[in-house]
Design a protein around this nucleic acid. Structure first.
Length: 441
DNA sequence: TCTGGGGTCCTAGGACCC
DNA sequence: TCTGGGGTCCTAGGACCC
């Protein structure tokens, strides 16, 4: 038996905790460049704002309907997420943190009233953190996701599902007819794992509702559309194909990419940007005690600018040996960049990916002795120690207190073309002392 | 003017081997 | 005319997730 706990409109809800005046108003949170809407309050959804919709398309609603846009504040959301996950973890023996705002809990063999447990969890997270959640229970992960979808939708759109299923929904307690009715009311496109390409294909095959999909021949669909869909159908039928994974493996790739505030055409500016990305991914690589064997760089023009000549090259550079040294990674990234850059294009985006990651073996096995340095620190040139020092300095004095020259500090003072826009980011209330909430008498 | 970022898994096809 | 077959490994690209 699985539970799925999910924060409603996570990013907007986090903002509302600290700015209660936003409650009841249409609010969106914008992506890194203030480019697109990546979270919407129920009121914003009601205005017709779509997920990932460009801000410029809905900007007029700010004046006409009071739509409020906030720049993303991922530091705040990440911290609120950790707090929520810690609370949820106490409700079951095993937890899988699936994304920033949702987790699976393994309720197999748990005694007591599940629905009561679901409400207790919901109430605690609401009271302690101010975040509204929905909880779904069912016999498989896919069904638990469906249960959660029902819990949310029943709350948000009265009449869509029986109101008794709002907030906390346990599909395992429904009779066969009631369960069929829920599935009849749900489009296949709302099922976890069925996206914008597969849903129309299923529609064309005459499978429009979850009920129709559940009654389909899983093996035959699997042959036609792939093993992933086959598992999804089996899970809808009640056969678990996926388990709660409470010990996920280390990341297999680390990526940093951004769209630019304005197009970039010159190599020196790309060098600056790519260096900065490489520094960031290197830092994250060291944070997971990893090393990588290859670096990939991509730059791309904007596919939305139909009249621009398009160019979106990628280059992958194998490294002579596994490393987490910022200098080696920046050098590799810049070599790759120089190999793919062509003058005369208006680049709109760039990124650096670390590939073929490995973890320090002894570290992973937990057999490092106290004070023993990790394997990668034993390089004869002592670079790991330098990197550890750099990380410590930046931790203490702020990110980029110590940096690499090619990344340039120009962007701090001068507004480079690639600098991202962030017009209204809220304070990082819970992670920066200087930005902590001020209470007035 | 303005269109997110960071991940995972699966599949198809080519290279290579015996 | 017909031009082996089966296996592995690697990579690029696609689909999906939030």
């Amino acid at each position: 038996m699985f539970a799925l706990v999910d924060v409603n409109n996570m990013y907007v809800s986090c903002e509302r905790v600290f700015r209660p005046a936003l409650i009841g108003k249409p609010v969106v949170v914008l992506s890194n460049n203030d480019g697109a809407c990546i979270a919407r309050s129920d009121e914003a959804k009601a205005l017709g704002v779509k997920m990932a919709q460009p801000w410029f398309e809905v900007k007029h609603l700010a004046r006409s309907a009071g739509l409020i846009a906030l720049s993303a504040n991922f530091e705040l959301y990440g911290d609120m997420s950790s707090r929520m996950m810690a609370l949820a973890a106490a409700y079951a023996p095993r937890q899988e943190i699936y994304s920033i705002d949702e987790c699976f809990l393994d309720f197999e063999g748990m005694p007591g009233d599940r629905i009561a447990a679901g409400y207790a969890l919901r109430h605690q997270v609401l009271r302690w953190l101010g975040l509204p959640t929905s909880v779904g229970f069912a016999a498989t992960k896919t069904l638990a996701k469906l249960a959660n979808h029902v819990a949310k939708t029943a709350e948000r759109k009265p009449g869509s599902y029986p109101h008794a299923l709002a907030q906390v929904c346990d599909l395992a307690t429904l009779g066969p007819d009631a369960l069929d009715e829920v599935m009849r009311r749900t489009d296949v496109g709302d099922v976890w794992g069925i996206g914008r390409k597969t849903a129309p294909k299923l529609h064309d095959m005459g499978l429009r509702t979850v009920l129709e999909l559940k009654r389909a021949d899983a093996a035959r669909l699997g042959r036609q559309l792939g093993i992933v869909l086959q598992k999804t159908v089996c899970e809808l039928q009640g056969t678990p194909c996926l388990e709660v994974d409470d010990d996920p493996p280390a990341r297999q790739q680390i990526l940093c990419s951004r769209s630019f505030g304005n197009p970039v055409t010159e190599l020196p500016e790309l060098v600056e940007v790519v260096s900065g990305f490489a520094i960031r991914v290197a830092r994250r690589l060291r944070a997971q005690q990893g090393a990588c064997n290859a670096v990939q760089v991509f730059i791309a023009t904007s596919p939305f600018r139909r009249h621009d000549r398009q160019h979106a090259p990628t280059a992958t550079l194998p490294l002579p040996r596994a490393t987490a040294d910022t200098r080696a990674l920046v050098n590799a990234a810049l070599t790759a960049l120089r190999g793919i850059y062509r003058p005369g294009y208006r680049y709109a985006k760039a990124g650096v990916v670390l590939l073929d990651l490995q973890v320090d073996r002894r570290e992973r096995e937990g057999s490092l002795e106290l004070f023993e340095e990790p394997e990668v620190a034993l390089q004869p040139d002592g670079r790991r120690d330098l990197m550890a020092t750099v990380d410590a300095l930046n931790e203490r004095f702020g990110l980029d207190a110590v940096s690499i020259a090619s990344s340039s500090k120009r962007s701090r003072n001068v507004r480079s073309a690639h600098a991202s826009r962030q017009e209204s980011r809220s304070p990082r209330y819970t992670t920066r002392l200087q930005e902590v909430v001020v209470a007035r008498a």
